[in-house]
């Protein structure tokens, strides 16, 4: 869900009293038609607000805090947990570390450059939800947001999570309220208060056993995704080759 157009206009008149809607779009680098459409519908999307805040040099977190449902965002920023940090490392990087350790090119305290791929990665959202889940996260999330569980699952499968659901998930899990917005790519890690070297540090801190099981779990997820994709490809091909 998004913020109301009324609240948005109020905020816009405060941060850029002289600027027209066109000016705002130019500064934020968004299409004028996109914002116009959102205003007509009475709902302005959260990414639009974040883009405008960035355009005017405001911290997006503080900008979002103006709107209903996000008021507690600035006070809710905490350092991410190690589980969250590790969840945002791609499976390729995890395997690279595993290989490095197997060849005694240990990283902790040494000069091995991990050079982790930027995140969000392909399974960022689901991996984060699993990392912060105290056990009944999905159920409580469905109850408190009114979004059906199948809908939540569909969002996670597609690698998406609506901003207000991401924030609510962080509230329930008791982690930094910006984490969900970082792993969905709405905020940059810096904007969300994630330390730049946090992921490498958390990853290197894993014991061998944990690293191996982490790699196994990630490969398991990947294997299921590939099987699913190949099944879908096979179905598409059957349709196309026979009837197309």
């Amino acid at each position: 869900m998004a913020v109301t157009a009324k609240a948005f206009q109020l905020w816009r008149s405060r941060i850029a009293p002289q600027d027209t809607v066109s000016d705002v779009c130019r500064v934020a680098g968004i299409k004028r038609s996109t914002l116009a459409q959102q205003l007509v519908r009475g709902k302005v999307s959260v990414p639009t607000v974040v883009a405008i805040a960035r355009g005017y040099g405001l911290p997006p977190v503080n900008a979002l805090a103006v709107f209903e449902g996000y008021e507690d965002l600035p006070d809710g920023i905490k350092p991410p947990t190690d589980a969250e940090l590790v969840s945002q490392v791609s499976h390729i990087d995890i395997l690279r570390l595993l290989v490095a350790r197997s060849e005694d090119r240990e990283c902790a305290g040494t000069d091995l450059q991990l050079d982790l791929a930027s995140f969000p990665h392909r399974n960022s959202v689901r991996a984060w939800v699993e990392a912060v889940d105290p056990g009944d996260l999905r159920q409580r999330l469905a109850e408190s947001t009114g979004v059906a569980r199948q809908n939540l699952s569909a969002q996670l499968t597609a690698g998406r999570l609506a901003p207000e659901i991401a924030v609510q998930a962080a509230r329930i899990a008791g982690v930094s309220l910006t984490s969900g917005l970082v792993v969905t790519g709405l905020l940059t890690p810096v904007e969300g208060g994630w330390p730049p070297d946090g992921r490498a540090r958390a990853l290197c801190a894993l014991a061998d056993l944990d690293l191996v099981f982490l790699a196994r779990d990630r490969l398991d997820v990947l294997g299921k995704q590939i099987r699913r994709a190949e099944l879908d490809d096979g179905k598409d091909r059957a349709m196309w080759e026979n009837l197309g």
Binding site: I92, R122, I226, A229, M239, W240, L243, G244
Partner: peptide, 19 residues
């Protein structure tokens, strides 16, 4: 189905499934 095939030929799915 013909339409889907014609469109699908142009934009194939992600080729490398490992990344």
């Amino acid at each position: 189905i013909w339409l889907s095939h014609t469109l699908g030929r142009r934009r194939t799915r992600q080729a490398n499934k490992l990344v």
